[in-house]
Write a protein that binds this DNA or RNA. Structure first.
Length: 572
RNA sequence: GGUCCUGUGGUGCAGCCUGGAGUGCACGCCGCCCUGUCAAGGCGGAGGUCGCGAGUUCAAAUCUCGUCAGGACCGCCA
């Protein structure tokens, strides 16, 4: 139907007879016998000159047969790629008429997102979305190529699987053949990829769809894509190298420039300096240790296991209102309170300064390297709470948009094996229950110093977003059983939930390690978007609805009966 | 489960704080004019349940409460 794409035509095509297809992007009428049509397809826009009489409205779909010619002097348009030429139409066919679009398709205004999603098929015509979908395709392709180059084999794993107890809330699919039983949709192909290792697929990867029924965010959808990878006979170092190669290749494909080697930071350092396991290292405002200054303080609020502070340069002009607002936020994040101090004329001006000694105040100024005009924030509490609250306050005070300042990758390594305990007092795995403890820390496991056990688990962070995580897995049955025991998972329960994995390990399990990272997040940042919905063709809203198809919606009783289901009345 | 923000012709905004007739701006739409525009231009016109429901008031887009939808975040996301 067409010989060329609109955006591809150049001066070198002058004189050619071409056939183009596309949408009417804009028309400019100059009376009865001259009109300009900007014809748009995926490749771009070209100006078509038509005899003015025809009724060609916005978004009509046209086929144009005509001749490429150089534009007359002084009429070239330097802002588009085809600006030196135009197509003189000899024949215009209306392939489809169109109602006026529900919103303008140019990029000048930000349109309400529900409206865009309801008419996504129109929204996708916009340059921004065409660009983002193209970038997504290129990122996928670059990742696949990088993994293939490194000898990985793509293996597809099932979508209808058994529910496993750990982790996020499962999406669930009722079984028709076995009423009352359910499949789960995979939160990740975790167990299947480990089985692939036992199966001798020593380098597995997959761009896998994953589903988790948790609340949505700017960087989280119910369903999302991960590069999932696993390799046998490798160490943590090998995995970091494989994954670094893949993400750096993807970045290079999109930006044209290969970022340098990805720096590393221990989980402990990340927590101490940034109050986060996914530190955004693009800006300062680091957490400073102040506990020792107040070991014998008279100020009761500072009689705490840990005190840390952050210095906001030139922050002393913050209004009392804003400071109260920040204090309130810190309380909602779990702190007992927030102490602020303004540095003015060498003095610390604060509601609490009268409770502090001169020694404490000068030590504070010195440690924080405070200067006139600065604002200091202090939080005192349990160490994990101080890190958590100041980490969030730091982001609140200084975090740039996720797309700003280039690509700041970071490996966070040496995660703890466990974090905290659940309601029943059982320790919780920080990563997942198949994570291999640090060789040096296996003794601590025996001694019961559980929170001190480091694991061979690692995260990849980009501009403060957690891209993904991975670990060296346990391949020895004894260690796995020990971990289950520590986690409070009974042998029977373990056998029931993960029996097939444990069984598999009887038949010759190679040492293996892996990783998985979010393709949507990587793509969004590479595309310069702050929200992954912008790089997903058909995303859901924050409440999990699809304005285009109205999903989720009720199904009829007949359908329910067939599945052996009955719906409870809505809660009051 | 929680905090905050938004909702006004088809679209994007202003108006709200400090209540007084659906008032304004830009784009789009419809009609007419226009032979070199490119966000074309000129003239004219149509288009509104101010998300929805209560309340306060002589009077509510505006104040209060509730509710719905959307968004950002906390919790949650092995």
């Amino acid at each position: 139907m067409r010989t060329d794409r609109c955006g591809d035509l150049r001066l070198t095509d002058e004189g050619r007879s071409v056939t183009l297809c596309g949408w009417v992007s804009r028309r400019r009428e100059h009376g009865e016998h001259l009109a300009f049509i900007d014809l748009r397809d995926r490749s771009g826009i070209v100006q078509v000159v038509v005899d003015g009489a025809q009724d060609l409205r916005a978004e009509y779909v046209l086929q144009i047969k005509g001749e490429v010619r150089q534009r007359p002097n002084e009429t070239t348009n330097t802002s588009i790629s085809t600006g030196e030429i135009e197509v003189e139409a000899k024949e215009v066919t209306v392939l489809s008429e169109a109602e006026p679009p529900p919103f303008p398709l140019d990029e000048r205004t930000e349109i309400d997102e529900v409206l865009r999603l309801r008419h996504r098929y129109v929204d996708l015509r916009r340059e921004r979305m065409q660009k983002n979908l193209t970038i997504r395709s290129k990122v996928n392709s670059a990742i696949r190529q990088a993994m293939e180059e490194q000898g990985f084999v793509e293996v597809e794993t099932p979508m209808l699987i058994a529910s496993t107890p750990e982790g996020a809330r499962d999406f669930v699919v009722p079984s028709r053949k076995e009423p009352g039983s359910f499949y789960a949709l995979p939160q990740s192909p975790q167990i299947f990829k480990q089985l692939c290792m036992v199966g001798g697929v020593d380098r597995y990867y997959q761009i896998a769809r994953c589903l988790r029924d948790e609340d949505l965010r700017a960087d989280r959808q119910f369903e999302f894509m991960q590069l999932d990878a696993e390799a046998s006979f490798v160490t943590q170092e090998d995995v970091l190298a494989f994954i670094s190669y893949a993400v750096l290749s993807a970045a290079e494909t999109i930006t044209g420039e290969r970022p340098g080697e990805i720096p590393r930071m221990s989980w402990h350092e990340a927590q101490e300096r940034f109050g986060s396991d996914k530190p955004d290292i693009r800006f300062g405002l680091e957490l400073v240790e102040l506990t020792d200054i107040f070991t014998s303080t008279e100020f009761r609020a500072f009689e705490a296991p840990c005190i840390k502070g952050i210095r906001v340069p030139k922050g002393s002009d913050l209004s009392r209102n804003r400071l109260d607002d920040l204090t309130e936020k810190c309380k909602q994040w779990g702190a007992k309170g927030l102490v602020w101090m303004k540095v003015e004329d060498g003095e610390l001006n604060s509601p609490v300064s009268k409770f502090l000694t001169e020694e404490e105040k000068s030590a504070l100024q010195e440690t924080l390297q405070a200067e006139d005009g600065d604002l200091l924030f202090l939080v005192a509490d349990e160490r994990s709470m101080v890190r958590h609250v100041l980490g969030l306050l730091r982001l609140e005070m200084g975090r740039p948009p996720v797309t700003e300042g280039g690509l700041s990758f970071l490996w966070v390594v040496d995660f703890p094996l466990f974090e905290g305990v659940d309601e029943e007092g059982n320790p919780q795995p920080a990563h997942h229950p198949f994570t291999m403890p640090h060789e040096e820390d296996i003794e601590k496991l025996e001694e019961g110093d559980l929170l001190g056990v480091r694991s061979q688990a690692y995260d990849l962070v980009l501009n403060g977003w957690e891209l993904g995580s991975g670990s060296v897995r346990i391949h020895k049955r004894e260690i796995q059983e020990k971990i289950f025991q520590v986690l409070g998972i009974e042998t029977e329960e373990a056998q029931e939930k993960f029996g097939f994995l444990l069984d598999a390990f009887r038949y010759g399990a190679p040492p293996h390690a892996g990783f998985a990272f979010g393709m949507d997040r990587l793509t969004a940042i590479l595309a310069g978007e702050e929200n992954i919905r912008e790089v997903i063709a058909y995303p859901k809203t924050q409440s999990g609805a699809d304005p285009l198809t109205s999903a989720p919606n009720p199904i009829d009783d007949k359908h329910l009966t067939e599945l052996g289901l009955r719906v409870l009345p809505p809660k009051q």
